[in-house]
């Protein structure tokens, strides 16, 4: 361009502007197309699972799920009606709820209390203790399996839902405390000082000021923990609760994968529909939680 003769400067500039605009428009079109393809590619696996879960098992031998798109007659809700009659699966769905809800509530309550203490109460060793919490963020849960199974055994908790809940709460706490302490620390000091001046007790300050102001962070934490526990398979495999959660029940189906895809596909879809709804409903909080927790 710099080598262009001086007389061409004006037209050159116009041409360049036109070329740049054209290539930008063309580039924009290509970019849009590429991103549409990427988005479709990302949706494809889940969509395939959905279609497979809606197919008549008798059709499985005749080809993959994509055949159902040209032959919608292959689709049926039969797998789902069968699934809803399968008490092992429906029962495990409710077991998952029985584990997830208490584990989430407990982490939020215990974590906020501790987060508040770390943010606003003076006590010796506070900073060192908090560094210990930061260190615990990345500790693999695997390190605790052997001793905790033994511990629960001697406490008579073997096979109970409580054992799974307690383990989830303990390993959810470092993240909860970390997230909430940082958020609570951002609450203006004047607000708390004013309340203390008015004679409010710490309990009242905690419930009436800190918790309401910390709601966005608490929502992020709650959703994050909810999904974490809902989706868990490993902890359930280790503690083997007699009331097994959905992931556990479905994982035992994968051993006979070929023969049980008519249970597995709708079951997997059932297990992901709740997290998906939570994600789409509270996306903002979830994304914030994940971003804050990019340490776990």
């Amino acid at each position: 361009m710099s080598a262009a003769p001086p007389s061409d400067i004006v037209t050159g500039a116009i041409n360049r502007g036109f070329a740049a605009r054209a290539s930008a428009r063309l580039g924009g079109g290509v970019l849009r197309l590429v991103l549409i393809v990427v988005a479709l590619l990302w949706l494809l696996p889940t969509f395939g699972l959905l279609v497979e879960s809606l197919r008549d098992p008798a059709q499985f031998a005749n080809g993959g799920w994509w055949n159902a798109i040209s032959h919608p007659a292959q689709l049926t809700t039969g797998n789902y009606t069968a699934l809803l009659k399968n008490h092992a699966i429906t029962g495990s769905f409710f077991n998952t709820i029985k584990i997830t809800v208490p584990a989430t509530v407990a982490v939020v309550l215990i974590g906020s209390a501790a987060g508040y203490a770390f943010a606003w109460l003076e006590f010796p060793g506070r900073d060192w203790l908090f560094l210990l919490i930061v260190a615990m963020l990345v500790i693999p849960i695997q390190i605790a399996f052997v001793p905790v199974v033994k511990l629960f055994g001697s406490a008579g908790l073997t096979g109970s839902i409580l054992s799974v809940i307690l383990f989830h709460v303990a390993f959810g706490l470092p993240f909860a405390i970390f997230l909430l302490r940082n958020f609570f620390a951002g609450i203006p000091r004047d607000l708390l000082e004013a309340a203390r001046m008015d004679g409010a007790r710490e309990g009242r300050i905690f419930f009436r000021i800190v918790l309401p102001l910390g709601l966005p962070a608490i929502a992020s934490l709650g959703i994050f923990q909810f999904l974490w526990v809902w989706n868990d398979l490993l902890v359930a495999l280790i503690f083997q609760p007699k009331s097994e959660p959905l992931t556990f029940a479905l994982a035992s189906q994968t051993r006979q994968f070929g023969s049980s895809i008519d249970v597995l596909a709708p079951g997997a879809f059932l297990s992901l529909i709740v997290p998906l709804a939570v994600f789409l409903g509270f996306q903002r909080f979830f994304v914030q939680g994940v971003m804050a927790g990019s340490v776990k």
């Binding site: 696996p45 889940t46 989706n231 398979l233 479905l250 596909a265 997997a268 879809f269 992901l272 998906l276």
Partner: peptide, 10 residues
């Protein structure tokens, strides 16, 4: 948001 179980099956 989806469990590794569901992704794994998929």
């Amino acid at each position: 948001a989806i469990s590794f179980l569901a992704s794994g099956v998929t």
